[in-house]
Design a protein around this nucleic acid. Structure first.
Length: 570
RNA sequence: CGGGAUGUGGCGCAGCUUGGUGAGCGCGCCUGCUUUGGGAGCAGGAGGCCGCGGGUUCGAAUCCCGCCAUCCCGACCA
């Protein structure tokens, strides 16, 4: 393509509303334009990168035997009703009515629809199946942000596996895991696979592929020694045991302690010498409309996601002080679970077997000491609820955990039979009886991947795409546009590149060379060939590598093979 | 949904406090001439419902009220 005819509206100045590097540069280099919050137009260069990202993903999906589909993004509400997710998805799902007043929705994902197609599977002998598509997803995010990183409308490569049994699912899952590793490696994304929560998808084993970046919205705990890595929503750590007083020394029942004015763990620790790790923190949460007591060690923060995962809740929120007062008789600051009945009590594992603890007495300004958790509190459910903090020991090897910010670029998880059951998918098993296939679900956000690549591969001059996904591999810069010989030589090189199968552009604009150099760098094209009268007199052109800035003079008749060499070398 | 900020030619901004004079600056764009190996110079020119609606006033980009939009922080989020 001729640059002079392409719509590449580069901006000399930084856009005002772009913060993240990918957002700023994709806008400035003319890849994207915003239509409204969370909805972006892809311009020609953006479309090219997107197509190349998709091509890489498609190749690797096909390589593991997955088959490409294309399903509607507009879907009947009833199918979501059937899976039970119409209400679960809440406000995040776009809903509308057609002219017949039928309820339809814009798909946030496609488990239901692929399961619907799975109804035509009839025998276990047809399994396994892996089905995928690239399709627009719509999610009414409360806060779209950071350009392509968090949007309301985006392309997802989503795939779904159907297997006859768990062992089959394990194999499909592993195939996808391996495919994802290859995909991100080829895309130039230093993704790390981390254990994750499966959120409201339902499912068990859940692995997120994370691209470390300061603009990432997820926090990941990693172990520098053994490679343990988990999303903070899931991460655990090995805790040193807290020494409680020997059983014999403990009082037979909790003792009342008047604590006027004490409202916080800190107050109690400082004022009464009751260390935070010897306190029970009592939080009151409203879980799906029901008041619930959540207990943690005094120095431990609650992970909302872990609470959701542990309870299967659709929604949780902290209770209001009035609700708490009405239920327990005291305000936050003096709450406890001793002797409480009629409300569900969920306790963190770190409280198990603890004795001699301090907690609120459910009377304002009064606490209890000498609390024996097993003896004094009727715990309904034990769960891992606490959020780990940096420096805590790795659960696998004990080394201090490190935290990093990351962009979630992919997510794979085992769905189980939730959707096949909901939609009534069965196949005949070896004995002739019905089998409900078990599913896996695997997603990659295409535009988010583009943004992640941009986050990882850029410098002060602009983007620096890996050749595999660059909008073009080479740009031929015509330095002296008015010089007939130069134009002809550049045109010849450009033609030879196309013939050789190189994805090349020719910058034939009638502008000064500096403008062309700057745009070549801003748009991040990996290789630049500068054709000017000075070098041409010696029969050479200049080849510049975007990443390193390395320049070399190459004889005109050697330039195509040299460029192919550089591209092959990566 | 809470907190903060911003809306002025395509882009980036000033003007608003203290209402009035031609709505201005840089970049970009168009024409001409010169220029051409790192974002050219000179001359001429086009382009603005000052986010929208209402109000105050002789007079509103400017003051007041309402709304909308966008961005940032938080909540939220496969």
């Amino acid at each position: 393509m001729r640059w002079s005819q392409l719509h590449i509206p580069t901006l000399r100045e930084d856009p005002a509303d772009a913060d993240a590097a990918s957002h700023r540069l994709l806008l400035r280099a003319g890849f994207i334009r915003q239509l409204m919050a969370g909805h972006y137009c892809l311009l020609p260069l953006g479309v090219r990168v997107r197509a190349k990202v998709m091509a890489v993903i498609r190749e690797e999906m096909n390589r593991i035997g997955a088959q490409e589909f294309l399903l509607p993004c507009m879907q009947p509400a009833w199918i979501w009703e059937k899976s039970g997710r119409l209400s679960v998805m809440g406000e995040e799902m776009f809903r509308l009515r057609d002219r017949k007043d039928a309820e339809v929705v814009l798909g946030m994902t496609h488990e239901e629809i692929f399961a619907f197609l799975g109804l035509e599977l009839s025998s276990y002998r047809q399994l396994p199946q892996s089905w995928y598509q690239f399709q627009t997803k719509f999610r009414d995010e409360p806060r779209p942000k950071s350009g392509l990183l968090r949007v309301r409308e985006f392309t997802m490569k989503d795939s779904y596996s159907f297997d006859a049994d768990e062992a089959g699912l394990d194999a499909s899952f592993e195939a996808h895991r391996a495919a994802y590793q290859r995909i991100f490696a080829r895309l130039g994304i230093p993704a790390i696979a981390v254990e994750a929560s499966s959120g409201n998808m339902g499912g068990s084993d859940s692995i997120e592929f994370m691209c470390p970046s300061p603009v990432g919205e997820d926090r990941v705990a990693t172990c520098p020694a053994c490679g343990y890595a988990a999303n903070l929503e899931k991460a655990t750590s090995a805790l040193a045991a807290v020494e409680d007083p020997p059983a014999g020394d403990a009082p037979a029942a909790p003792r009342r302690l008047d604590t006027p004015g004490v409202r916080t763990i800190e107050d109690l620790a400082v004022g009464y010498g009751l260390a935070a790790d010897r306190q029970i923190k009592t939080l009151v949460q409203v879980i799906d409309g029901k008041l619930t007591l959540v207990l943690l060690r005094g120095d431990h923060p609650l992970s909302d996601q872990k609470l959701i995962d542990a309870t299967g809740a659709l929604s949780i929120r902290p209770a209001q002080p009035e609700e708490i007062k009405a239920a327990l008789g005291a305000l936050p600051g003096s709450l406890g679970a001793v002797g409480v009945s009629g409300y569900r009590i969920i306790a963190d594992l770190a409280l198990r077997g603890r004795r001699g603890m301090a907690t609120g007495a459910n009377t304002d300004d009064v606490h209890l000491t000498g609390v024996d958790v097993d003896r004094d509190i009727r715990v309904d459910q034990w769960a891992d609820l606490r959020e780990v903090t940096p420096g805590e020991p790795c659960p696998k090897c004990g080394t201090a955990l490190e935290f990093l910010q990351a962009i979630e670029v992919g997510h794979i998880f085992k769905l189980g039979r939730k959707y096949t059951t909901a939609l009534g998918v069965t196949v005949a098993g070896p004995d002739g009886g019905p089998i409900v296939p078990i599913m896996g679900s695997y997603g990659i956000g295409v535009e988010r991947v583009m943004a992640a690549i941009a986050e990882v591969h850029h410098d002060d001059a602009g983007l620096a795409w890996p050749a595999q996904v660059a909008p073009a591999e080479v740009t031929v810069v015509v330095i002296s546009q008015r010089d007939e010989q130069v134009r002809a030589a550049a045109q010849a090189i450009y033609g030879s590149l196309l013939e050789a199968g190189v994805d090349a552009l020719i910058d034939d604009r009638d502008v000064r060379p500096g403008v062309k150099y700057a745009d070549a760098e801003l748009t991040g094209i990996p290789l630049r060939v500068s054709v000017g009268s000075r070098d041409l007199a010696d029969g050479v052109v200049e080849v510049t590598r975007r990443r390193t800035g390395e320049k070399e003079r190459v004889r005109v008749d050697r330039v195509v093979p040299r460029l192919r060499e550089l591209l092959a070398a990566g």
